[in-house]
Amino acid sequence: MRLLYAFIAGGLFGAGLFVSGMTDTSKVQGWLDVFGDWDPTLAFVMGGAIIPMAIAWRLVPGRKPLVGGTFPEPQDPRVSRNLVLGSTMFGAGWGLAGLCPGPSIASLSYGGLWHWVFAAAMLAGMALAPRLRVTLDRTVPAE
């Protein structure tokens, strides 16, 4: 059942990214570009996604996941150097291409060559991240 639910969740995610237009890089860059012809769509996508998710979080206390196990522990709330630096790097890449990890995967079947090149570079970046983490800890000790 765990695998079926994962497939359903992924399907809803992929369908949502597709119908919302979030795999269209011009809509993402159009939202980020406040000095251009501003496109508000992304704000509606974010707002729409947060509603069911906020309801889900309210159902968590006192329950267990359907397939068993436990819900994720509340995270360490501290804002770390890696959180800020990583998010800034991510934002720069997001602005450059108009793609983030979810839409880059959802659009592989129809986006063409450059979506595959982006995805390959993204996987390479993900593979390099552990080493970057170690290098950062050595050169700029956190906290």
Partner: peptide
């Protein structure tokens, strides 16, 4: 962009 998104999101 891909490298920044990949490394940045994991960091």
């Amino acid at each position: 962009a891909g490298l920044l998104v990949g490394a940045g999101t994991r960091l």
